[in-house]
């Protein structure tokens, strides 16, 4: 099975809002060895001008994963998890994610390219807050191995 080239340009339905929990941020911060007080201590975050603790730069993957699940669940996509390698990842922030944010993510498949027997799929997830303002764009390049 090969990746369906018609996926290129496809925009998926926005995900249900994801509420960024303070304890989830702390749990994630600990898991990535974050030691900055602004990641875990509410007072330190407020002293630095934030409403609540700030998520580590890669936290957006937790929300982006909801959109990648949409892609994997898409009938006829030709993308199976067991054949997917994570090739590249990027996060571009307008502002940091803080506890209490409600994030909605919208996935666009910006590119599908054949590469030998494999395919490279670029999946870009735009995340906005409850006011509809952009927070972060998370982009993954997935390498989907062919069955050759």
């Amino acid at each position: 099975m090969t990746v369906n080239p018609e996926l290129q340009g496809r925009v998926f339905e926005p995900t249900a809002p994801y509420l960024v929990g303070r304890e989830k941020v702390r749990e994630f911060a600990r898991a990535v060895f974050a030691v900055n007080p602004i990641n875990v201590d509410v007072q330190a975050a407020r002293d630095a001008g934030y409403a609540d603790i700030v998520a580590p730069p890669t936290f957006a993957i937790v929300v982006q994963e909801k959109t990648l699940a949409q892609l994997l669940a898409e009938p006829g996509s030709g993308i199976e998890l067991s054949h997917v390698l994570h090739g590249e990842q990027r996060f571009s922030y307008t502002r940091p994610i803080v506890a209490g944010d409600e994030l909605t993510a919208t996935l666009t498949v910006t590119s599908v390219k054949a590469l030998g027997g494999n395919a490279m799929v670029t999946a870009e997830s735009q995340m906005t807050d409850a006011a509809g303002d952009h927070v972060v764009t998370a982009t993954s390049v997935l390498v989907v191995r062919g069955d050759a």
Partner: peptide, 11 residues
């Protein structure tokens, strides 16, 4: 952590 405005890698 809020000063990191963009972060990218290749695996």
């Amino acid at each position: 952590p809020g000063r990191v405005v963009d972060y990218r890698v290749r695996f």
